[in-house]
Design a protein around this nucleic acid. Sequence first.
DNA 1: ACTGCTATGCGAGTAAGGCTCATGTTAACC
DNA 2: GGTTAACATGAGCCTTACTCGCATAGCAGT
Lengths: 212, 212
Amino acid sequence: MTSTLRRRPAQRRSVERVERMLDECALLLDEVGYEALTTKEVARRAGVPIGTFYQFFHDKQGLVRALARRNLEAFLQRITARIPAADLEHWTDLVDLAIDEFVGMKRSTPGFAVVDFGEVLTTPDGPAVGGSRWSLDDAQENNVVVAERLRAVSLELLDAPAGPGLDRALLVAVEATDAVLKLAFRADPAGDPALIAECKQLVHRYLADHLP
Amino acid sequence: MTSTLRRRPAQRRSVERVERMLDECALLLDEVGYEALTTKEVARRAGVPIGTFYQFFHDKQGLVRALARRNLEAFLQRITARIPAADLEHWTDLVDLAIDEFVGMKRSTPGFAVVDFGEVLTTPDGPAVGGSRWSLDDAQENNVVVAERLRAVSLELLDAPAGPGLDRALLVAVEATDAVLKLAFRADPAGDPALIAECKQLVHRYLADHLP
DNA sequence: ACTGCTATGCGAGTAAGGCTCATGTTAACC
DNA sequence: GGTTAACATGAGCCTTACTCGCATAGCAGT
């Protein structure tokens, strides 16, 4: 994958069009789900001809990946914006803040409940290409990015013991959080509060091994 | 959803055909992934005409759901078969046994790495129909079934404190396990050992609140 | 203003997949 | 043997992802 987008929108008009397409994609995902989502409908609603659609997005998956990417950016932005204001006494406060923000976005951001940061579909890439996998330099595995960001914050705010163990632990925590919160929102469209609480507990207990 | 299958195979020949279709489905999932999987190819490889395919399966998703169902059944079977032989001193041994079996199936059972027990795609069901959701009586949410089974075993072997808290905790644990193991197998086709170990740790710590 | 030239806008058309349905075939029962 | 119901089959329909060649718009040099 060269980039998320096929062609980076240069003119102001193009940027707006891409943004509109992502917006409509998000809304449609909520309405009909990934499988029933059609590129034609996204283009039509966004007022963009189908040919132009494919100038910007590689394919249907590319569209959704771009949305996931935008979600990720928004999440990181919100997190970093809220951190200075909040007084974090323990690292657990940071965990809770992140989870609450994630839940907030699940509730308020269209399409977020369906895709959040994740690839909806994973395509097998044929016999693994050489080199250790998940190098993360390509866009794949957005959760890795989340984990890295949280790690950076952790190291900055609390004096956490750096090391590969923490990296892995945070990644595991993010992945688990993602799954449990998805469950919480499958069980209850507004997000089952008990399951959300349980999610925090899960992460607290687990990370207690790696943070003071 | 009435049932997983459209028509339950009655004759011996039909049962074999359904089984063959599921087998080929699993193999194809490993080869090309869910999205590129075609019903035509599954039917062709299984030596079954396409019309017959649709006599048994509602649609493409139905095929995959049926496979997930079969996987679930196989997993429960294996678990219950191994439990009497193993001497479980702590509940943690049960957790490890379940995870090891899961990992084993990820490695050996075709298609298991892609779908395991899960719905690959979730379709929004329109404004939630009345009644509390996830009643579980319908086939959805296979992980609920896993959680229930594990709970039954837990109550039997160890005298665990029954109650709704444990139910929820086990469900959360299963969901988290699923996610982390998926990560482990995305990172390394053979299943990253460090991540698998971390997965066990995650569950141990979390369930320690609910089991003695 | 005019003329080439490149970059972008556009949508009819193509290939392929999901799924159906009219017709053929077997089995079951009287 | 005859009647009826269940099952089998694959050509074809409809929809969807995606392309490609033409139209248009900006723009540099004269």
